[in-house]
Amino acid sequence: SQTQRTQDENEARRIAEEWKRRGYDVEVRNRNGHWEVTWD
C-alpha cells in the first residue's frame, strides 16, 4: 500500500476519490492534524 499526506482535507478527499475511481481500496485518516490517504 502507499500513503500520501496533506494538510488539506479537501485535497485528501480528491486524492481518495481519484484512487477509488481507479479501483483501489482507499482509506482516509486524520492524524495529528494532517490527512493521510492510503491505497492498495
Rank of each mutant, 00 (worst) to 15 (best):
R29Q: 12
E18H: 12
N10R: 12
K20E: 10
R5K: 11
E18M: 12
T38E: 07
I15P: 00
R29L: 12
W19G: 06
I15G: 01
R5V: 15
R14F: 06
V26P: 03
R21W: 05
W19R: 04
D40F: 15
K20D: 04
Q2I: 11
N30V: 11
A16H: 02
G23V: 00
S1Q: 13
E27S: 12
N10F: 11
V26M: 02
V28S: 01
T38Y: 11
Y24L: 04
W35L: 01
E36W: 09
G23A: 01
E9K: 04
T6S: 06
Q2V: 11
Q4K: 10
G23Q: 01
T3F: 11
T38D: 04
R22T: 03
W39E: 02
W39N: 03
Q7P: 11
G33H: 03
S1D: 08
E9M: 05
E9R: 04
W39I: 14
R29K: 12
E36T: 07
Q7H: 12
T3S: 11
N10A: 14
D25L: 13
E9I: 07
I15N: 03
R22Y: 06
W35C: 00
N30D: 09
E17M: 08
N30F: 15
D25S: 13
R14H: 07
E27A: 10
T6N: 04
A12F: 02
T6E: 04
T6F: 15
Q4G: 05
A12M: 03
A12N: 00
Q7R: 12
Q4N: 06
Q7A: 13
E18R: 07
S1V: 13
T3Q: 06
E27Y: 11
R31L: 13
E17Y: 06
R22A: 09
V28R: 00
R29W: 09
R29E: 07
R14Y: 06
I15M: 08
G23K: 02
I15V: 08
V28M: 05
T38L: 09
Q4V: 15
D8N: 10
V28G: 00
G23T: 00
E17L: 09
I15K: 04
A16V: 04
T3M: 11
S1Y: 12
Q7V: 10
W19Q: 05
D25R: 14
D8A: 04
E11S: 07
W19A: 06
R14W: 07
N10S: 13
R13L: 11
A16M: 05
V26C: 04
V26L: 03
K20W: 08
R31M: 14
D8H: 07
V28F: 03
D8G: 06
T3A: 08
N32M: 06
W19N: 02
V37A: 01
E17H: 07
N30R: 11
R13N: 10
R13K: 10
D8I: 03
W19S: 02
E36N: 03
R31T: 13
E11L: 07
V28T: 04
E11D: 08
G33S: 06
W19T: 02
T6V: 14
N32Y: 08
R13G: 04
E18L: 11
D8T: 12
S1R: 08
G33W: 02
G33P: 02
Q2P: 06
E9T: 02
W39L: 07
E36S: 04
Y24Q: 03
A12H: 01
Q4M: 15
R14Q: 11
R29D: 05
N10Q: 14
R13F: 09
N30I: 12
E11M: 06
R5W: 15
H34L: 14
T3E: 04
E36P: 00
Q7N: 12
R31A: 12
A16S: 05
N32I: 04
D8Y: 07
T3R: 04
A12P: 00
G23N: 03
Q2S: 10
V37G: 00
E18K: 09
N30T: 06
Q2E: 07
R13T: 06
V28A: 02
R21G: 09
R13S: 05
E27D: 10
Q2G: 14
W35Q: 00
E17K: 07
R13Y: 13
S1A: 14
R29C: 10
D25Q: 14
Q2A: 09
Y24T: 02
V26T: 06
S1L: 13
N30M: 13
A12L: 02
V26Q: 00
I15L: 12
Y24V: 05
G33M: 03
V28H: 01
T3V: 12
T6P: 05
E36G: 01
E18C: 10
N30W: 15
V37T: 02
V37Y: 02
V26D: 00
S1I: 14
T38Q: 08
S1P: 15
R31H: 13
T3Y: 09
N32R: 04
Q2H: 14
Q7F: 10
Q7E: 13
T6D: 03
D25P: 06
W35I: 02
H34R: 08
R22G: 03
E17R: 08
E11F: 04
Y24A: 04
D40W: 15
H34A: 12
R21S: 12
D25T: 14
T38R: 10
W39G: 03
R5L: 13
V28E: 01
Q7S: 12
W19L: 15
R21I: 09
Q4L: 15
K20I: 13
E27T: 14
W35A: 00
W39Y: 08
E27L: 11
R13I: 10
N32P: 03
D25M: 12
R14G: 05
W19M: 14
N32E: 10
I15H: 03
R21F: 07
G23R: 01
A12Q: 01
A16N: 01
E9D: 03
K20R: 14
R21V: 09
W35P: 00
E18T: 08
D40Y: 15
V37P: 00
R13A: 06
K20T: 10
D8L: 04
E18G: 05
D40R: 15
W35H: 01
N32S: 06
N32H: 09
V37N: 00
E17V: 05
R5C: 08
H34G: 09
R29P: 01
R21M: 11
R29H: 14
T38N: 06
D25W: 14
N30H: 14
V28Y: 04
A12K: 01
G33N: 06
E11Q: 07
Y24W: 08
H34T: 13
Q4D: 05
Q4I: 15
D40C: 14
N30P: 07
E27R: 10
D8S: 11
W35D: 00
E18Q: 09
Q4T: 13
E11P: 00
W35R: 00
T6I: 10
G33I: 02
E17I: 06
E27W: 10
D40T: 15
H34P: 01
I15A: 03
R13D: 04
D25K: 14
G23C: 14
K20H: 08
Y24F: 10
A16W: 04
A16D: 01
E9F: 08
R5T: 13
D40A: 15
E27Q: 13
E17P: 00
E17T: 06
R22K: 13
W39P: 03
R31E: 11
R22D: 04
W39T: 07
R31K: 12
E18P: 00
Q2D: 07
E11G: 03
Q7K: 14
R21E: 10
R29N: 11
Q7M: 10
R22V: 05
G23F: 02
R29F: 13
D25Y: 14
V37K: 00
Q2M: 12
N32T: 04
E11C: 00
T6M: 09
E9G: 04
R21A: 14
Q2T: 13
A12R: 01
G33Q: 03
E36H: 05
V28K: 01
T3H: 07
R31V: 15
Y24N: 02
W39R: 10
R29Y: 12
Q2L: 10
N10P: 07
G23H: 03
G23I: 00
D8E: 06
W19E: 02
R29S: 12
E27G: 05
E11R: 05
V28D: 01
R31F: 13
R22P: 01
R21L: 11
A16Q: 05
H34Q: 12
W39Q: 03
R22H: 07
V28N: 00
N10K: 12
Y24P: 00
R22F: 06
R13H: 10
E9Y: 11
Q7D: 14
